[in-house]
């Protein structure tokens, strides 16, 4: 066994625990040496701790600096702060990296999609500055800062370069929001000057949406402010097969949390019915972050093979396998290849 990594496991709620157990089964079978430390997060914490994100969980992530997270649900329209947004804020996980790559066996109308999205994760309308400024008017401050914009652009160019990418576009609405999106675009252009080996440009967000659905193959990497990023990364996930296969990483300078971006599907909780692939591919991203490329590639290859055979796949991709049966099939495939 190689170097031991200590990783915080956040199973979340609803179907999260059964998904995370399936994912752990696969990752542990890949040959990587991980000590998992389980911590609570999400709606189930409310009764026990009075918060969606207990301090004990925060302290554990602060210690381990890497976590794998299952799905959680944020109550709509109540006073509870989102556990996801709180994690991003507390650990300043400013870069949300969301790859959108075609999985070969999932039939889609396009031959090629391989987009790497870099969403700024901490600013914009997510700064939690909202007021009822009169009894008829609600106001939300869109906060864009030069250091925050510069930082995500710098992160994106460096990540892109390290992964052999060729082209980065900044997505914005600076023709209307000249100060906020204008600042974001100016910072991007400033960083781009330092990376002449990577083609850079910009595109207005509404045009970008149209171009994505008409010809997604033209895009390589996108850098987006928080709100556009939230929306367009799901759009990109939809292009390649839906949120069930969409990985995500929230990365800061001192910590990284890998998570699926889909919900917790509470109506299926305990039925072992749902597809764990999104958390699994997030786990593969995590393994690459931990420099465990061999284990990551092994899992990825086995997962594609199991999906291709379609004998042991979950209902959403036309099969009847349970969550853990799908995971076991991936494990068996890895061992068969060994």
């Amino acid at each position: 066994m190689g170097t031991q990594h200590v990783v915080t496991m956040l199973p979340g709620e609803g179907t999260g625990p059964e998904i995370c157990e399936a994912v752990r089964l696969v990752i542990d079978a890949s040959g990587v040496n991980i000590k998992w430390e389980y911590e609570d997060i999400g709606l189930d914490c409310l009764e026990k701790y009075g918060t969606l994100l207990p301090d004990k969980t925060i302290q554990n992530i602060a210690k381990n600096k890497v976590a794998l997270k299952g799905p959680t649900t944020t109550p709509i329209g109540t006073g509870h702060k989102s556990a996801n947004v709180t994690l991003r804020k507390v650990f300043d996980l400013y870069a949300n990296v969301r790859p959108a790559k075609l999985i070969p066996v999932l039939k889609r109308p396009w031959d090629k999609i391989d987009i790497l999205n870099f969403r700024e994760n901490t600013e914009d309308c997510y700064a939690a500055i909202e007021h009822m400024v009169s009894d008829e008017v609600a106001q939300c401050l869109k906060v864009i800062t030069w250091p925050g914009s510069y930082r995500i652009a710098d992160f994106a160019f460096k990540w892109a370069k390290a992964n052999g990418r060729k082209k980065i576009y900044c997505v914005h609405k600076a023709n209307i929001m000249k100060m906020t999106d204008g600042l974001f675009l100016d910072a991007f252009r400033e960083v781009a000057k330092q990376h002449p080996d990577i083609e850079s440009g910009d595109i207005i967000v509404d045009n970008c949406c149209m171009q994505l659905v008409r010809n997604p193959a033209q895009f390589d990497c996108l850098v987006l402010p928080n709100l556009y990023g939230d929306i367009l990364t799901d759009l990109c996930a939809g292009l390649v097969g839906g949120l069930g296969f969409a990985p995500g990483a929230n990365v800061g300078d001192g910590c990284a949390i890998f998570e699926a971006v889909h919900g917790s599907a509470p109506k299926y909780a305990g039925m072992k019915k749902v597809n764990p692939s999104a958390v699994l591919v997030s786990g593969i991203m995590m393994l690459r972050w931990l420099k465990e490329e061999a284990a990551a590639a092994r899992i990825e290859k086995a997962m594609f093979a199991v999906l291709d055979e379609r004998k042991h796949v979950t209902y959403d991709v036309g099969g009847t396998a349970k969550t853990d049966e799908y995971a076991q099939a991936i494990v068996d495939k890895m061992h068969a290849k060994a």
Binding site: I58, D92, T122, I129
Partner: peptide
């Protein structure tokens, strides 16, 4: 007190937290 929407007083503050010169 918050900075870029993140609480910086009282309580835990990540040592890596990016702060600007504008506080709520």
């Amino acid at each position: 007190i918050s900075n870029r929407g993140t609480k910086v007083w009282p309580g835990f503050v990540s040592p890596d937290l990016l702060q600007v010169n504008w506080y709520r």
